[in-house]
């Protein structure tokens, strides 16, 4: 479970998150939508403490991420996978090495066990045939699918998707959305998606947050947020995005 308690995050004088209170249930699929600069990515990045709250706290499975010792933070991050906008695969490693390096070195299973897990995850994202390729030999969509498999190979309890399709060419977006959808359906992992793909959000989420100006403006099931928004800013935002 992830719990935000009055979380404020600032970059210099700019307050990006203004007192977020939020509970994300275990195994749930939450989608965060909202205009650029609204604090969506920052919200995601506070969960693994890539951004430190100036005030308030983020509790992951009961542990205050800001208050724990460094080695405990590193350990906690092993259970919090992250998929980035720009994939961030390790270019000097093959696809398989990208998947196995961290779990082997951080001892999340024996080499054989991790390799088997990696191969199963590559199969799940339809990338088995590229096991020995380097990231530079893959298309953007393929790289993102490998990045998803890499995050899964850590056996995470929480998976964060930070605009995973924003850097992709239009024809590659669908393959990544399909992959994410399949993973979301098949795995009992708490997932939070920051995305501009509204159809995907409506289809996959059991909860949608609309974030604007550093505040959660709307928090409801997708049907309500998309078809019966309560906040005029949500209506205005959806109007711009959907039409």
């Amino acid at each position: 479970m992830i719990r935000f308690e009055d979380v404020h995050v600032s970059f210099g004088n700019l307050e990006v998150l203004k007192g977020i209170n939020l509970v994300v249930a275990e195994g749930s699929k939450t989608v965060v939508i909202g205009p650029s600069g609204g604090g969506k990515s920052t919200l995601l990045r506070t969960i693994n403490l890539f951004e430190k709250p100036k005030k308030g706290r983020v509790l992951v499975n009961g542990h205050d991420m800001n208050g724990i010792a460094n080695h405990k933070l590193y350990q906690a991050r092993q259970s919090i996978g992250m998929v980035f906008q720009n994939f961030n695969l390790y270019p000097h490693k093959t696809v398989l090495e990208n998947l196995t390096m961290a779990p082997i070195l951080l001892k999340r299973g024996s080499k054989q066990e991790v390799t088997e897990r990696a191969m199963a995850n590559l199969a799940a994202v339809n990338m088995t045939e590229k096991v020995d390729a380097y990231p530079s030999q893959l298309s953007g969509g393929q790289q993102q699918r490998v990045a998803i498999a890499r995050a899964l190979t850590m056996n995470p309890e929480i998976l964060l998707f930070d605009e995973p399709t924003s850097a992709l060419d239009p024809e590659m977006i669908q393959e990544v959305l399909d992959t994410m959808e399949r993973v979301a359906e098949e795995r009992n992992i708490t997932m939070i998606f920051v995305t501009h793909e509204m159809k995907f959000a409506e289809h996959i989420a059991d909860r949608v947050l609309f974030l604007d100006g550093g505040c959660i403006m709307e928090d409801d099931i997708p049907q309500e947020v998309f078809h019966n928004p309560k906040n005029p800013r949500t209506t205005a935002f959806l109007g711009k995005i959907l039409h």
Partner: peptide, 15 residues
Amino acid sequence: VPLGQMEAAQSQGFS
């Protein structure tokens, strides 16, 4: 080296 590389590694639990 792009900053994302350090972030990717740290997100996996590397110090």
